[in-house]
Design a protein around this nucleic acid. Structure first.
Lengths: 185, 185
DNA sequence: TTGGACATGTAAGCCGTTACATGATTAC
DNA sequence: GTAATCATGTAACGGCTTACATGTCCAA
């Protein structure tokens, strides 16, 4: 499981390049900071950490805080080299699967009003996302670390993507009734 | 493999709801019409077709055209019911993984200029996509079948997504040099 | 005392890609 | 005759999610 081609390794390595962390903290950090374009589950994180230690990309030590065992993971110089090499490679094209679009494509075979319902639900979710982005953006004001500029780029991407999606949703919702009335003629 | 939860089944079923087709044709159609938001490989299509026949969602007959064997697949009434049921279900949230954004997020650990290169490569690809979309759009002029309206919605989504991405790419490329000079101070 | 957050891990199993195997037909 | 396209499948393997198992600490 996760033996070399998995990008999970590099996601973890990238975070460890700025701070040492436990598996649990890595999970949290990912969910909070890059969750809108990258996800990792425990089922991958823990095996990946073991694997990377074996390869010498990280050092892992069990630090006993109080009575809790908590493994702290630290990147090694070798790990930094591996990370830099990966960062230099061209991103491989993503496989995109958009279930909502698929359902719209087949909408002629769905009951009337169904797809409109999906679009409305998606609009609510998108508005929710927009709010979350705005909150993050407002907290990210002051001139921080070097990385902050890059973080802002990824946030900006998210904001624009949601913005574009919302506009498409509104426009498509406005066009839907016409299509359906046409169908009924 | 692909025993029930896979959405491949429904993608195939949706196409078969409008025309009978062979596995090979299904692959072609998917690549040409919904390829920008949905992909299927032969490794899934053929087993899925067998599976759906066993379930009674489709009928498959080996039609000998000349000397070639070619299995033609036709949707059954039961298949239509299954399709309609699936269409009525809310789309499950997609898992998004954007490698380019991940690399940008970690850009502080990459060699200078590397990420800018990725952005430029991505811009070229996006421009290519934009051209493809424009071509499809121009061929989709006349008032066609009922489904055509829905197909246009999915195309519209693609066009807006690329448009937004391109604007983000341009703006981000414009901001990159400043970030890097800051870093060198 | 009970529930929730903290914390680490394993196992099962699905989903999907890729590579392989095979063969007919068509165009150059 | 040979390469490309048409055409159908199988096998291996990898990646990832989900569910399970286990246990501590803290607050209401």
């Amino acid at each position: 499981m996760a033996r070399g081609k998995s990008k999970s390794h590099f996601a973890l390595l990238g975070i460890l390049a700025e701070r040492e962390a436990s598996g649990y903290e890595l999970r949290q950090f990912i969910a909070q900071s890059i969750g809108h374009f990258w996800q990792e589950s425990f089922g991958q994180i823990y095996p990946a950490l073991k694997n990377m230690e074996k390869k010498g990309w990280i050092n892992s030590v069990a630090a006993d805080l109080g009575m809790k065992t908590r493994r702290r993971h630290r990147i090694t110089p070798k790990g930094r080299k591996v990370l830099a090499t990966w960062l230099a490679e061209r991103p491989t094209p993503e496989v995109i699967r958009n279930e909502l679009l698929l359902k719209i494509f087949f909408a002629a075979h769905a009951g009337s009003g169904i797809i409109t319902g999906h679009l409305k639900a998606q609009r609510l979710q998108a508005l929710e996302m927009q709010k979350v982005f705005q909150e993050i953006a407002s907290q990210m004001r002051a001139p921080e670390a070097v990385s902050a500029a890059y973080w802002r780029f990824t946030l900006d991407y998210g904001q624009r993507a949601v913005e574009a999606e919302l506009q498409w949703l509104e426009d498509t919702l406005a066009k839907m009734p016409k299509v359906q009335s046409k169908k009924q003629v």
